[in-house]
Design a binder for these strands. Structure first.
Length: 476
RNA sequence: GGGCCGUUAGCUCAACGGCAGAGCAGGGCACUCUUAAUGCCAAGGUUAGAGGUUCAAAUCCUCUACGGCCUACCA
């Protein structure tokens, strides 16, 4: 049976019902959530999508599902009106119906509503995927996520958890007197991260704009404006490769606490993530892709420079020594990367260290040259008060004491222009520096990748599994 | 960007050089406590698309599209 034939058969049923005066795409229906329905209730109204039908002549059973659960309906031909019998005859799996009746248990113990009244609330013209095996084709799962959500309870569960994680984060931060703000997503200068931006154009103003790659510089302008504890759960956009860890648009939490610092951010990170693990996974032991992760506090801390000395690099500033070590360890370095010691260090770290960071680990004190927005360590201007958090081999957070010295900031921006790796367009955000010149309080700032956090909390191997509609090429 | 793998009915999968098949869904018939309901009947295909090799191609080759993984890129 071709798809077109199935559809036209269903259209015929729809026309048949319309002819009988049935409103096939119904109206408001005050239903009780299926999960709340209990044995013995009378005249209960339930509504949902038909997931299965088992007909036995005059007696039939239907399974319907709403957002809270699934329940069986018992349809007896002689218990309803002629009009309702006609509706029943023209039903298909996938249709959304409303039913009213009494609740009992069948011989086999299944909670069931005997239908007294039946209405159709939405006719489904396309067939649902197979009831037993569900929908497996990943391409269809991502392109038609609604089908994935209808058919695969694991997928639904992942997104339920995502929703809750966002909700718990807001509760947590609000309780700590942070307020949620929203800042522009269209920036005249792309700043706050080193990433290739998407470019767009405003016609009336005839100006190019960049979709934000990070909200950081706007949030810190708010610190200048006397907002002291702020956060934004933001969508940011980076015009780079797509991978199981990267989607062009992704969700990040950024928060800033005036008069705080890097250390305070560490405490918030630990409290926030352990709180989430306890609420989402009922404890501090989680499993990610067969890795057992223990979130028990305190978390491990490793100084950034120690990573490299532990690998046997005596002086991390000695580029040739690092390259030699990388080659010795079998880490391939492209010729282009060899021109920049941070690229080599980064390659070494990503290949040899990061995969082993299973239990949460703070790597701290990063070089200023790769941290242009972070405050230097006292007495050690080359290094910054900054950490990144890794767990399950994934980078999940990045935080620092915010650089609030405008002269120093300007200098760092200019230096970053020179260091700009690859073919990034770089511009010094003079407007941001000017804001700092009015005085920004010392502050701690923290960024957490929400998508990756959701991956960890739901044991999802790919970022596409935790984003409702991941970007895919257009289907031709 | 490069490499490897995949794409067969609406869905889940067989067939792997010799007539393209099954289960589910859909249609018909029977059946008033079933739950992957059951039994019987009938239907459903440009094997992702294009080209090539061959007596013969879903199957081998080339290209294209889309997807997945790896890699590259990535503060």
């Amino acid at each position: 049976m071709s798809e077109e034939n199935i559809r036209s058969q269903r259209v015929e049923k729809l026309e048949e019902l319309k002819k009988q005066g049935v409103d096939v795409y119904g109206r408001a229906f005050s239903k009780k959530d299926i999960a709340l329905i209990t044995e013995g209730e009378t005249d209960v109204k339930a509504a949902g999508r038909i997931m299965a039908v088992r007909k036995h002549g005059g007696s039939s059973f239907l399974d319907i599902k709403d957002s809270t659960g699934k329940i069986q309906l018992y349809f007896k031909r002689n218990a309803v009106s002629e009009a309702e019998l006609s509706i029943f005859k023209n039903l298909d799996i996938g249709d959304i119906i409303g039913a009213e009746g009494d609740v009992f248990r069948t011989k086999t113990g299944e909670l069931t509503i005997v239908i007294k009244h039946l209405s159709i609330l939405s006719k489904s013209l396309n067939p649902l995927p197979e009831k037993w095996h569900g929908l497996k084709d990943v391409e269809i799962r991502f392109r038609k996520r609604y089908l994935d959500l209808i058919m695969n309870s694991e997928a639904k569960e992942v997104f339920n958890k995502r929703v809750k994680i966002l909700q718990y984060i807001r509760e947590f931060l609000n309780k700590r007197d942070f307020i949620e703000v929203d800042t522009p997503m269209m920036h005249p200068i792309a700043g706050g991260a080193d990433a290739r931006p998407f470019i767009t154009h405003h016609n009336a103003l005839d100006m190019n704009l960049y979709l934000r790659i990070a909200p950081e510089l706007y949030l810190k302008r708010l610190l200048v404006g006397n907002f002291e504890r702020i956060y934004e759960i933001n969508r940011s956009f980076r015009n780079e490769g797509i991978s199981p860890l990267h989607n062009p648009e992704f969700t990040m939490l950024e928060l800033y606490s005036a008069y705080g610092d890097c250390k305070q951010m560490m405490e918030i990170t630990e409290s926030l993530i352990t709180m989430l693990a306890e609420k989402i996974n009922n404890g501090l032991a989680i499993e990610y892709q067969k890795m057992k992760i223990d979130l028990t506090l305190p978390w491990k801390m490793i100084k950034w420079t120690e990573i490299f000395s532990s690998l046997g690099v005596e002086d991390w500033k000695d580029k040739d020594a690092i390259i030699r070590k990388a080659e010795e360890l079998g880490v391939e370095i492209t010729e282009e990367d060899k021109t920049d010691k941070y690229e080599v260090l980064d390659a070494l770290f990503k290949k040899k260290i990061q995969p082993n960071l299973v239990n949460p680990t703070f790597i701290y004190e990063y070089p200023a040259e790769v941290s242009p927005l972070a405050k230097s360590c006292p007495g050690n201007p080359g290094m910054t008060e900054r950490f990144e958090l890794f767990m399950g081999g994934l980078e999940v957070a990045n935080a620092y004491s915010e650089l609030n010295d405008p002269v120093e900031q300007h200098k760092r921006f200019v230096e970053a222009l020179g260091n700009a790796s690859g073919n990034r367009e770089k511009t010094v955000d003079e407007d941001y520096v000017e804001a700092l010149e009015y005085g920004m309080p010392p502050a701690g700032g923290l960024g957490i990748g929400i998508d990756r956090l959701v991956m960890l909390m739901t044991d999802s191997p790919s970022i596409r599994e935790v984003i409702f509609f991941p970007l895919l090429r257009q289907k031709k």
